[in-house]
């Protein structure tokens, strides 16, 4: 029988085991890197029906986030603006711009502008905007520097680990309530942020839930 299998075949089982280990490592690394929202969602910047620039409106003009997203303090949902909100200014500014035709049609007919949702949580997550805003979590913590974005881009992974990082230790991410919508605000120093954050946690009784039912029902 010795002429059927060469001598090197004796090493084959070991080589196969080693190869399978290598494949296992590569697959684990690949899944970890590519199959989480850090890869699948961060960087998502869909083409919107109106090429609205947050860099111009929120950055250059300095409009407050709440001018358009007017319900964030009162409602769990951060609302998209009505067409009338756009027309508050655009009934006089750039009234003939073809880029705004969709908005004008929406204002005239009542049909909504078909904006594409960028930040979308699974249906089993009950995120409430108003409580985060009321407790001094800045918009920038989850949405990034929207005021520098020409097109809104998904900035943070918004995974459960991302939420829990802050729910376990909120102090580093709390800011004075008046600065919540100021995307460029930063504490003067890390030590100042730490002291301020701890004070807010105490004063505002910040006690973010870590139980399942805090965010899932």
């Amino acid at each position: 029988m010795s002429h059927l299998f060469p001598k090197s075949a004796n090493k084959l089982p070991l080589q196969i085991i080693i190869y399978l280990c290598v494949i296992g490592v590569v697959a684990t690394a690949g899944i970890t890197y590519y199959m989480t929202p850090k890869y699948t969602r961060v960087g998502y910047a869909p083409v919107q029906p109106v090429p609205y620039s947050h860099a111009l409106h929120a950055g250059q003009l300095g409009l407050d986030c709440r001018y358009c997203h007017s319900n964030i303090e009162a409602s769990g949902l951060a609302n998209l603006p009505t067409a009338q909100t756009c027309m508050n200014c655009h009934n006089q500014i750039k009234t003939a711009s073809p880029l705004l035709a969709v908005v004008r049609r929406s204002y005239a007919t009542g049909q909504p502008v078909p904006w594409v949702q960028v930040h979308r949580l699974p249906d089993f997550v009950y995120f409430n905007h108003s409580i985060h805003v009321a407790r001094g979590v800045g918009c920038v913590e989850c949405h990034g520097h929207i005021n520098q974005m020409e097109t809104v881009t998904h900035d943070q992974p918004l995974t459960m680990a991302f939420c829990l990082d802050c729910h376990r230790d909120p102090a580093p991410r709390l800011r004075p309530r008046a600065e919540v919508t100021n995307l460029d605000w930063r504490a003067p120093s890390a030590a100042a942020q730490d002291a301020m954050g701890r004070k807010f946690v105490h004063d505002w009784n910040v006690n973010p839930p870590q139980s399942c039912s805090g965010c899932h029902r």
Partner: peptide
């Protein structure tokens, strides 16, 4: 597949 953080416009992949 590229790397993380790349800006893209297509609908995000649902893995």
């Amino acid at each position: 597949l590229g790397f993380r953080g790349k800006v893209f416009t297509h609908t995000p992949m649902d893995v």
